[in-house]
């Protein structure tokens, strides 16, 4: 094939691929763009006209929604002496810290446990292997609501309720079936000869796990870390049940949800709040994306 045609073909391909991708991403971004534009509009405007027309009223855009979300809402009270007092609600910085405190251990702890279990299921023979694996898959479908009351009872007995430990363990427990299942899938695709030769060389099972399985599974570990981070970060129910709604421990989702008002009327705050809470997960995604790399196992595949 002459180099010219090959080059042309490559160009066509690139154009085709990228335009298709642009089409899809436009479809994907459209709803979120609405959210983004809305987050800068005054409350009364949101219901008066579509967000796509907001470009013509750009002078009406305001950062006030974000100011209220980050700094706390303003209220007016009439004090006992009859004077009007303006007060500000809680700001979000404490909720941010709480969310990070909840999330980081709740992401890291289950990964190691799940990776070890996945290795066991994928490569080791033991009594009950099948039945245990079936149970792990089956537990994927169990709605976690059914576990709330029994676990809360156990926590009461252990004095755990309302502590961070309670919520780390809960997220570990509820995240484990998926973690084990996903990592099992990945670890089981590691070429058998790599492990075989390591075992032949006299490495123990533990050594193989630490020195081979974990490094080779980095993309899968990173992928799971991203997902677990998102779930924990955006979780509301588990935090409310095991940590409580006290302002000292309230996480970001709780603060945002209560900011919307008891009857959900404050969309202007909801939209800006949604963007504020998105920042950290996106940073995590970008940071971990670099682990999705080609060729980790490339040298060691059956040719």
């Amino acid at each position: 094939m002459p180099a010219e045609t090959k080059k042309a073909k490559k160009l066509y391909e690139a154009v085709f691929v990228n335009s298709l991708l642009i089409l899809i991403t436009i479809a994907w971004i459209m709803p979120a763009l609405g959210l983004f534009v809305t987050s800068f509009r005054p409350r009364d405007d949101i219901f008066a006209s579509g967000w796509w027309t907001a470009g013509s009223q750009i002078e009406r855009f305001t950062l006030d929604n974000y100011r209220q979300v980050l700094g706390g809402r303003d209220f007016t009270f009439v004090g006992a002496d009859g004077e009007t007092v303006r007060a500000s609600g809680d700001n979000l910085s404490r909720a941010f810290q709480n969310s990070l405190t909840v999330t980081i251990p709740a992401v890291i702890i289950p990964i190691f446990i799940a990776a070890a279990a996945a290795y066991g299921f994928a490569w080791l023979n033991f009594a009950g292997r099948k039945i245990f694996f079936t149970i792990v898959v089956a537990l994927l479908v169990v709605p976690l609501q059914i576990a709330l009351i029994p676990i809360l009872q156990d926590y009461q007995a252990l004095g755990l309720t309302g502590t961070y430990l309670a919520i780390w363990l809960a997220h570990t427990g509820f995240g484990l079936p998926l973690a084990t299942y996903l990592l099992y899938n990945y670890i089981s695709t590691i070429p058998k000869d790599i492990l075989e030769s390591a075992f032949l060389d006299g490495a123990g099972r533990f050594t193989v796990f630490i020195r081979l399985i974990l490094p080779l599974s980095v993309p899968a570990l990173a992928a799971f870390a991203i997902f677990q981070f998102l779930w924990v970060w955006n979780d509301l129910l588990i935090a409310l049940v095991f940590l409580g709604a006290n302002a000292d421990v309230a996480v970001l989702t709780q603060r945002l949800q209560s900011m919307v008002g008891s009857r959900g009327q404050d969309w202007h705050l909801l939209t800006s709040g949604a963007f504020v809470s998105m920042v950290i997960p996106l940073i995590v995604f970008f940071a971990l994306q670099r682990f999705f790399i080609r060729g980790l196992m490339s040298g060691s595949v059956k040719g």
Binding site: A198, D201, A203, R211
Partner: peptide, 25 residues
């Protein structure tokens, strides 16, 4: 199977002998 240790990625498997792996580890 391909001659494994020789072609193995050196970053992830920088030891060719299990024994050594075990010691370091």
């Amino acid at each position: 199977s391909s001659p494994l240790p020789a072609e193995t990625d050196t970053n992830t498997l920088n030891s060719k002998k299990g024994e050594k792996v075990k010691q370091i580890h």
